[in-house]
């Protein structure tokens, strides 16, 4: 049986099957085959991508940020994409890398959370469980030579404890009080460390917001795949809150004097 109506109920070929010994469904099929689509295909590169995600610990929980851009190569293709995704009531994941793989991960986690909800056993999955699930998922997929092309940050707050950890397309995991993916791991991470390390238990939400905002601003100046529209997620004892899109304040007056930057007047 195939999905081409023209092949259904084809007259029997008496040369091959004179007495109709084959059931219709088992007759040899001589239709042309598409060898490429029939073969196994693996992801070999990301297509539509998101850039850095930043996250830090602060006094009351975790703060995470990512801009709203999904690039198609160097083209700023989709400019209103949310890359911070709540999972249950205690967790947020932030994704850089392939956005279609991220959407797939979202649907897998949604199904997982529904299963847990339906079990109705008095337990809910927290950030640690979600992070471990993702690490198993990412490692299983890289072992199939078909990775989900993302770097993910998992942040959360449950039972009075903060949680912040990283997992990438290889299944690598680590944890720290400041984390950044992609370009941000080079540009923003040193800034975040200087501001946060040692101060995790004293930083207020406003201070944390300022640190995140400054780092996002530096990234927008330096990262050619970034956008000045971004969102901030805060996860505290009160639960998950993801902000509306925010606009970065930037100044480009310094560019006036740089030859080759703007409109040139010779």
């Amino acid at each position: 049986m195939d999905h081409f109506p023209l092949n259904w109920g084809r007259p029997r070929n008496d040369g091959l099957d004179l007495y109709g010994t084959y059931p219709i469904t088992q007759r040899p099929n001589h239709a042309p085959k598409d060898a490429f689509s029939a073969g196994i295909q693996h992801t070999q590169q990301p297509i539509v991508t998101g850039t850095s995600v930043l996250a830090i610990k602060f006094k009351d929980g975790i703060m995470m940020a990512a801009d709203n851009l999904a690039s198609y190569g160097s083209l700023a293709r989709f400019r209103d994409i949310q890359r911070l995704h709540p999972v249950g009531a205690h967790t947020v994941i932030g994704a850089s890398g392939d956005m279609s793989d991220f959407q797939y991960i979202q649907s897998i986690l949604d199904e997982l959370m529904i299963d847990e909800f339906a079990a109705h056993d008095g337990h809910t999955l927290g950030p640690a469980e979600v992070h471990n699930y993702l690490s198993e998922l990412m490692y299983a997929r890289r072992s199939k030579m078909d990775p989900l092309w993302n770097s993910l940050l998992v942040g959360g707050f449950k039972d009075g404890k903060r949680f912040l950890a990283f997992v990438d397309l290889l299944g690598t995991t680590y944890s720290a009080s400041t984390l950044a993916t992609g370009y941000g791991a080079h540009i923003a991470q040193p800034l975040l460390r200087r501001a946060v390390e040692g101060n995790e238990d004293t930083l207020t939400e406003d201070e944390a917001r300022k640190i995140i905002q400054q780092s996002m601003q530096v990234l927008f100046y330096r990262d050619a795949r970034s956008l000045d529209k971004y969102q901030i997620a805060t996860i505290t004892a009160a639960g998950v809150h993801i902000s509306e899109s925010l606009k970065l304040e930037t100044s480009w007056s310094f560019a006036e004097g740089i030859r080759g930057y703007g409109a040139q007047t010779q």
Partner: peptide, 13 residues
């Protein structure tokens, strides 16, 4: 029923 609901979400999002 849970399988059917999950299948519906999978197919129709």
């Amino acid at each position: 029923a849970r399988d059917e609901a999950a299948n519906h979400r999978d197919v129709y999002r």
